[in-house]
Amino acid sequence: MITFPNAKINLGLNITEKRPDGYHNLETVFYPVPIEDALEIHLSNDANKKYSLHQAGVEIIGNEEDNLVVKAYLLLDKMFDLPPVDIHLYKRIPTGAGLGGGSSDAAFMLKLLNERFELGLTDENLEEYAATLGADCAFFIKNAPTYAEGVGNIFSPVSLSLKGYQILLVKPDIFVSTREAFSLIKPHKPEYSLKETISMPVSEWKGRLVNDFEASVFPQYPAIGKIKEDLYKNGAVYAAMSGSGSSVFGIFAPDTPIPEIDFDKDCSVFKGNLE
Rank of each mutant, 00 (worst) to 15 (best):
N45S: 15
F263E: 01
L26W: 00
L168R: 01
L231D: 08
A223F: 00
H42N: 14
S203C: 06
F270C: 12
A181P: 03
S203Q: 15
P222A: 12
E17C: 12
L194Y: 03
S44T: 09
M79P: 00
V69R: 02
G250C: 08
I174D: 04
F270V: 13
V210F: 01
K226I: 10
S268L: 14
M109K: 05
L168V: 13
L43V: 04
L82K: 08
R92D: 09
E196W: 00
G101K: 09
N114H: 05
T28N: 13
Y147G: 12
A239E: 04
T16V: 15
A135M: 07
N45L: 11
P83H: 09
D21V: 12
S193Q: 06
L112M: 07
A253N: 12
T197L: 01
K18Q: 15
Y192F: 15
K91M: 04
M241T: 12
K228M: 09
I258Y: 02
T132Y: 02
L184P: 00
I224G: 09
S52T: 13
P157Q: 13
F218A: 10
E180S: 09
Y238P: 02
P20R: 11
S103M: 08
A72Q: 02
K18A: 11
G100W: 03
F155L: 13
I9P: 02
K71C: 06
K71A: 08
